[in-house]
Design a binder for these strands. Structure first.
Lengths: 330, 330
DNA sequence: AATCCTTGGGAGATCGATTTCCGACATGCT
DNA sequence: AGCATGTCGGAAATCGATCTCCCAAGGATT
């Protein structure tokens, strides 16, 4: 009981493999409607499904694209992958998702695995702005690659990202308009382009005296560490801008435990607008990425001729989502 | 500048394709060390990477396994996929993850896509105990399939799951030992085997008078709805067992807003022990699945001859993780 | 010295679908 | 009627790697 092949369908329909292929693969070539019907019928009856490897070998294309994200443990990247999946599926393709475990070496490995003939093209959310470049450049020389949400130096390809500076400005402006003027930043993952840009934008806005707490990566644990440091300085600040939602969540929880009222004493903002924010008490103000539009643009670039993927950064505008964590203190 | 083929490597090394293949694919056949060295060198110099489709077509195996989970929006399934990925990678394979959007129809589609020659075998966490069966049975007739975490009726294959009844008993016993006797259950997703088993175990333990709040699915929003109902009944109960962490999180947040102290007035437990629990205030008591052991067993079954995958359910023992959400009320 | 193994390289078949190319037939035009 | 034109089915080449044979060379055995 082995799987039916195209030949089996063709024989059952009384036609040649060529005709069967034309009907089933939809080649731009007319086939007698009666024959087509017989082929369709036979294929359906036998439960025929084209062998993916054979088709890929012959056509040189797999109908699959991949995306490598830094870590699926961060719900933001799950949302991001989902946004891309929507558009890929709408275009008739399949998306496979890989996790780089926040490690450029594993990232390079995942890229290589996917490019070993499994995908037609690749989206990468680079782990590191400095270290991810070479592996991506190699990949981009073999297949279309588009960076998403973050860029990497020397990648040799285009990046579709958020305008992080504008996002930080939105947050700081919002806080100042609600009467907060002693704002601190909790930033993580300065190795990534997004982390670095957010930090840079904040220090530019606030000058050298800016209060910043820097952490190695975007985890909830790091957020709690930050919480302790903020608690120590509670009297010198009245608002904290976090570089990621997971940081904000950890921070708010620590402030709670230390009985520092949010937003009563300190206002807190997140970044990325992941779903968990709404669950929190208080719900946390954040920045929403236009993920769907970004995904659409990225897919267009991936399918465009390579000359349109020159190394550069395209930026999309963020949107501020105000929630209770930044209500006026009064 | 097209990709180098095996033939190119063979010519560069001055040997035949057969020899080059034997060296690079590691066939159990001796090759002169000198020739082997020349082949390796040539392959490295040309940056040769075997064409995945061609190899898959010839060998009939892809080195890839898939897993279809109900939804990646639930962090538990992300953890689960990660546990499987660890073991698959350790065995030299690749894992691709698909999201069924909590819909049996999409689930069936994802299964079909993956089985169209992309994977050697498949893990499925079925969306529905009643409706997922047929699609899985079809799949299992074509390739090895192992169910994970949940089972489905008529699937025709083995399932590696948690002993949900034991887990509910652990939770209820723990609550009773800490002096809580008016326990309610918030359950969701009764269409899934895990949801149904948890509900059944609870009603069996508590009798017909058991207080239960049933919700259609495992989302945080559902958790909040449950919260409102529990708040209404706050004086009749002193503990709530939630059928999922996401439910517990939404519930605790609602109780907070309604100024019902947790665990002061009501103790709350989760299920699945996802990372977000530790972030909450208070951290939430939960049930930990032995995911790594389960993944290992599931992979073994996937690679075993099909006669070892007769339809049945293998159950692993849960572990109770006590946190502050169930501290004694005093 | 003749024969038998053993070892290891190479020619060619093969996996299953797509696609080029050719030929058969029908139709339209002069 | 004769020839050009167009339509459409089928035979066979093709994608790239693997693997089965077959064969040559060298050593061991009698």
């Amino acid at each position: 009981m082995t799987a039916p092949r195209l030949l089996d369908v063709a024989e059952a329909a009384g036609v040649s493999r060529a005709t069967a292929s034309r009907v089933l693969a939809g080649t731009p070539r007319n086939v007698d409607p009666e024959l087509a019907r017989r082929v369709e019928e036979a294929a359906h009856r036998l439960g025929y499904q084209a062998n993916h490897s054979a088709r890929a070998l012959r056509t040189g294309t797999t109908g699959t694209v991949g995306v490598v994200v830094p870590s699926l443990a961060n719900p933001y990247f799950v949302q991001l992958a989902d946004a891309i999946a929507q558009h890929v599926r709408a275009a008739g393709g399949t998306l496979v998702v890989s996790d780089a475990a926040n490690d450029p070496a594993i990232e390079a490995e995942q890229i290589d695995t996917l490019l070993g003939g499994r995908v037609d093209g690749l989206f990468v959310v680079p782990v590191s702005a400095g270290e991810s470049g070479p592996a991506i450049r190699n990949a981009a020389a073999r297949r279309p690659v588009v960076l998403f949400d973050r860029w990497a130096e020397g990648s040799g390809t285009v990046a579709v990202t958020l305008d992080n500076a504008a996002a930080v400005r939105l947050l700081v402006d919002h806080l100042e308009q609600t009467g907060r003027h002693r704002i601190a930043l909790v930033a993580a993952d300065q190795a990534s382009s997004s982390g670095a840009e957010r930090l840079a934008a904040f220090t530019e806005l606030q000058g050298d005296g800016a209060t910043t707490v820097l952490l190695p990566n975007f985890t909830t644990d790091a957020g709690r560490t930050a919480g302790r440091r903020i608690v120590e300085q509670r009297d010198r600040i009245d608002a904290v801008v976090c570089g990621a939602d997971v940081l904000a969540v950890g921070l708010v929880s620590t402030l709670h435990r230390s009985s520092v009222p949010v937003p009563g004493k300190i206002a807190v903002t997140g970044f990325d607008d992941t779903e968990i924010l709404e669950l929190f008490d208080p719900p946390i103000t954040s920045i929403r990425h236009p993920l769907s539009a970004m995904a659409e643009r990225a897919l267009t670039l991936l399918q465009a001729p390579s000359r349109e993927r020159t190394e550069r950064v395209e930026r999309f505008q963020p949107q501020l989502v105000v929630r209770a964590s930044t209500d006026t203190g009064s």
